[in-house]
Amino acid sequence: MIAYSEVSAFTETPGQGNQAGVVLDAASLSDAEMQALAAFVGAPETVFVTRRGGGLVRVRYFTPTQEVDFCGHATVALGLMLAQAGWWGAEAVTLETLAGRVPLRLVCEAGVPKQIWMQQRGPQFRALGREWRSHLAEALGIDERMIHRGLPLGAASTGLWSVFVPLLDGIILDGLEPDLAAVERLSAELEVGSVYAYAPMGVNRFAARDFAPLLGIPEDPVTGSSAGALMALLAAQGRLPVKHNRAVGVIYQGHAVGTPGEIEVEIEVQDGQVTAVHVGGCAALDREGYWQGE
Rank of each mutant, 00 (worst) to 15 (best):
T158M: 04
L173M: 09
G159W: 04
L168D: 09
I172W: 09
H135T: 11
G100L: 03
A188K: 10
R149C: 11
I142P: 02
L106T: 10
V112A: 14
W117E: 15
I116C: 09
E191V: 13
G170E: 14
L151K: 00
L186G: 07
L190W: 02
R121Y: 00
G154P: 00
E144S: 14
L128G: 06
L186M: 06
L136N: 06
Q120G: 04
G141F: 07
A182M: 10
R149F: 02
V165P: 10
G170K: 04
G122A: 13
R101Q: 14
G122C: 07
G175A: 14
P166D: 03
E184L: 02
Q119F: 08
V107R: 10
R145T: 15
T158Q: 01
F164V: 09
L176N: 06
G175L: 06
R121N: 08
P113W: 06
E144T: 13
E184R: 10
P103Y: 00
D179Y: 05
L151Q: 00
A127I: 08
Q124M: 10
P152D: 02
L160K: 03
R121W: 00
F164S: 03
I147L: 14
R185L: 08
L140E: 09
P152F: 00
G150D: 14
V102S: 04
R101G: 05
S187I: 03
L167N: 01
G100E: 07
C108L: 13
I147R: 00
L140W: 07
Q124R: 08
W117K: 04
D169M: 01
G170Q: 13
P178H: 02
L151A: 02
V102D: 02
R105A: 11
A99P: 06
H135V: 14
R101C: 12
A127R: 11
A127F: 08
V163W: 06
D179N: 15
L168I: 13
A156P: 00
E131C: 05
W117P: 07
G141H: 07
M146W: 05
L98K: 12
L168K: 11
R149M: 10
D179Q: 10
Q120A: 11
L167G: 04
E189G: 01
E191Q: 12
R126C: 04
E189F: 00
G129Y: 03
P103D: 07
G170L: 08
E131P: 02
V107E: 15
A181P: 05
G170S: 14
M146S: 12
V107S: 10
G111H: 08
R105E: 11
D143T: 15
P123E: 00
V183R: 02
G129S: 13
W161F: 02
R145L: 12
A156M: 01
V183A: 05
E131M: 08
S157K: 00
L140M: 12
V107K: 07
D174Y: 05
Q120C: 05
G159A: 03
V102Y: 02
E177Q: 13
P166F: 00
L180W: 04
L106Y: 08
A155P: 01
D143N: 12
C108N: 12
I116S: 10
L186D: 01
A110E: 15
E189V: 06
A181L: 14
L173V: 11
